[in-house]
């Protein structure tokens, strides 16, 4: 009984992972002007979009200096901030995104290493 249940859970997870592979990603990168940090973040995120999410990535880069009201709406405090709007759950990343591995893990693109 227990074993069967466990199998079904695993199956569910596997299915979710299969689905994720085809899921569309909606990413928003908020920056404040084109600082070196902004540029670095943009480079990393663009790379991920190109390499891991080819064809299913909706990335938008927003300069808060130009659209300051969005900072309030999106609860931005630190910049650069990358928000993964879809797939759920919503997740935020702040910083210059130097750690690509961490970012990939956070975006559920590679499994978390124990």
């Amino acid at each position: 009984m227990i074993a069967k249940h466990a199998t079904s859970d695993t199956e569910l997870l596997e299915e979710a992972a299969r689905k994720a592979k085809h899921q569309k990603y909606v990413l928003r990168l908020y920056v404040a002007g084109m600082t070196p940090r902004s540029r670095e973040a943009l480079r990393t995120v663009s790379e991920i979009c190109r390499e891991e999410l080819a064809g299913r990535c909706d990335l938008e880069v927003i300069d808060l200096y130009k659209q300051p009201t969005l900072a309030h709406r999106e609860q931005i405090v630190a910049v650069p901030t990358l928000i993964k709007k879809l797939p759920l759950p919503l997740r935020r990343f702040i910083g210059s995104m130097v750690d690509k591995e961490k970012l990939l893990v956070g975006l559920d693109l590679i499994p978390r290493t124990p």
């Binding site: 973040a41 300051p68 990343f93 130097v98 970012l103």
Partner: peptide, 20 residues
């Protein structure tokens, strides 16, 4: 809980909000 830090950042977002 919904935030991860990767690299350096600043609080310009906060500044922008306050400034606005």
């Amino acid at each position: 809980s919904e935030m991860e830090e990767t690299g350096e950042y600043d609080l310009e977002g906060l500044f922008i909000r306050l400034g606005t």
